[in-house]
Structures are given as structure tokens and as C-alpha cells.
Design a binder for these strands. Structure first.
Ligand SMILES: [Mn+2]
Ligand SMILES: [Mn+2]
Ligand SMILES: [Zn+2]
Ligand SMILES: [Zn+2]
Lengths: 125, 125
DNA sequence: TATAATAATAGTGATAGTTACTATTTTCGA
DNA sequence: TCGAAAATAGTAACTATCACTATTATTATA
């Protein structure tokens, strides 16, 4: 993965944010430094950085969000304001309860594993 | 929520499927019975049925999927074929390991809580 | 350094899933 | 049976994201 100041900027913006920014958030922030950076470049670099494990992609209802914290942790996403909060994953069963104890109201818990299934892994030798 | 044969058909199709069908899957199946049913009607009824808890909406990368099983359970989604498999949620920490034991390759685990946060709950009295 | 090969970019256009809109039709209670 | 309320079909709009291409930047090499 070669050098480009655009890619470094995208990475720096994710690294400096605690708000789990969206691609658009990052694009708007990036334009303050590189005014003619394109949205496509932001998306491409977010994908590359996610694939290489330098940042984490979080699938949320209305567009993906990005996280400088790449170790496994859960998120609480507010359906009203869209903010994404970190949730440490020590327990797990009592997690939703703990979130509710903080005054949040958990409406839905989504747990999704993604990967390649047995039969697909076989079919491409 | 009033009666309509379209809504009953959408619900019946979800109830009879074990494949976690997408909105388009359901639309195509519904047209076999009601040829001029519209895609908008399918989407509207899927949303209504999900909201009322009669079916479960599963957010997956490439479009939502729908589930007749509404009790809490996890899913393994293959990024190659798109199939969605049920995963019982007894343990949780060893879940990814168990999926791998079955020959699947877990690339990413997504755990997402959604709801209304404390400050938003306060702001609308 | 000069230069050729490679990689990345900006800008634009396309795509797909979903929602919004509206005129028409269906349902349902009085 | 009749009128309000709800639901529909069809279409258009929206948004996040990806694809394409000509141009520019980076890197490797002589
Ligand atoms: Mn996080
Ligand atoms: Mn399921
Ligand atoms: Zn909120
Ligand atoms: Zn598969």
C-alpha cells in the first residue's frame, strides 16, 4: 500500500476521533486540509485501511461508521441521534442490562458473524 | 393494523422460509400469488411486521434480511454466498470458535445494540 | 537525475436498497 | 350501503457506496 497524503489524512482523522465518524464526516473533515479531496478517495482509503486492520468498520443502519479502536468491542447506537458508544465486552449476557442501567434504552441487539462458509471455502479449492 | 391479503402473504412467505429471505426474495415469491403486488408494499409490510414484532429484521451488509424466528439468536452470514445461518446463543464467548468448528471461517463478528440513549430519552420528555 | 512503470487521485456516473409521494382501490365500522 | 380510514400500485426520489477514466503523483531503475 503506497504513500499518499490523502490516505494519511483519512487515517489521521479516524485516529483522532472518538465519535465513530461516518465516511461523510471524514470527508468533510478532510476537506479542511485538502480542499479538493474526493469522496471516492475517502471511501477507497477507508476500505483499504479497514481491510488491512488499521481501522475498524462498524456496520450501522444508516451507513457505516469507522473506529480507531480495532480490538473487539461492542457498540451501542442511538437510533435517534445516531451517536455510537463503545461498550466493553467482558460479560455479554448482562450487557444490555448494563447499558440500560446507564439510562439508555436498548431496543435491539444485533450480533452478526461474517465470513466464508464451509461449502464456499471448499468450492474455491 | 388492518387486513390486506398482501400483508398476509408477506407474513406467510417469511413464516414459511428458513433462508432468511431478503425483501426482493419475498417480492419475487409474492408475485407468484399476487402478480401485481408492488415492491413498495412488500417493504412497507416488512417494516410494519418488524415493528410489531411479528418478524425479525436482520441487518446484513448487502440489504436487510427477514426472519420468522423472533426470539434472540445470532446469525452467521457468509460473505460469499450471502446465506444466513442461525446460531444459538447459549455460550457467546466460544460462539465464533464453535462456528469455525463447523468448517465456517468467521472473518468478522458484529455486535450492535440499538435504541434511544439517555440524553435523547430526556429531550423528548 | 532522467525516465518509465506503477499506484493513487479527482471528478463523474452508475448502482442498489430503500423510502416518499400520490392517485386509486380496498377495508371496515356505523 | 355509505363514507372515513387504511392500504395499495406505480413511480420518482434519495443515499450510501462503488465503478470508470483521464490525469497526477509516487516509486523504481538506469
Ligand atoms: Mn468503538
Ligand atoms: Mn434466524
Ligand atoms: Zn441519542
Ligand atoms: Zn457461503
Amino acid at each position: 500500500m503506497g504513500y499518499s497524503k490523502q490516505r494519511e489524512l483519512v487515517k489521521a482523522i479516524v485516529a483522532s476521533s472518538c465519535a465513530h465518524p461516518s465516511a461523510t464526516d471524514i470527508y468533510l473533515e478532510a476537506r479542511k486540509t485538502i480542499p479538493d479531496i474526493s469522496l471516492g478517495t475517502v471511501y477507497r482509503n477507508l476500505s483499504l485501511l479497514s481491510q488491512s486492520g488499521e481501522i475498524l468498520r462498524i456496520p450501522v443502519d444508516k451507513g457505516d461508521r469507522f473506529d480507531k479502536t480495532t480490538c473487539c468491542h461492542a457498540h451501542f447506537c442511538c437510533v435517534k441521534c445516531g451517536r455510537v458508544f463503545d461498550v466493553p465486552t467482558d460479560g455479554m449476557a448482562a450487557l444490555a442490562d448494563r447499558i440500560c442501567d446507564h439510562g439508555h434504552d436498548v431496543k435491539r441487539t444485533t450480533l452478526l458473524f461474517e465470513g466464508v462458509c464451509k461449502s464456499c471455502a471448499k468450492s474455491d479449492e
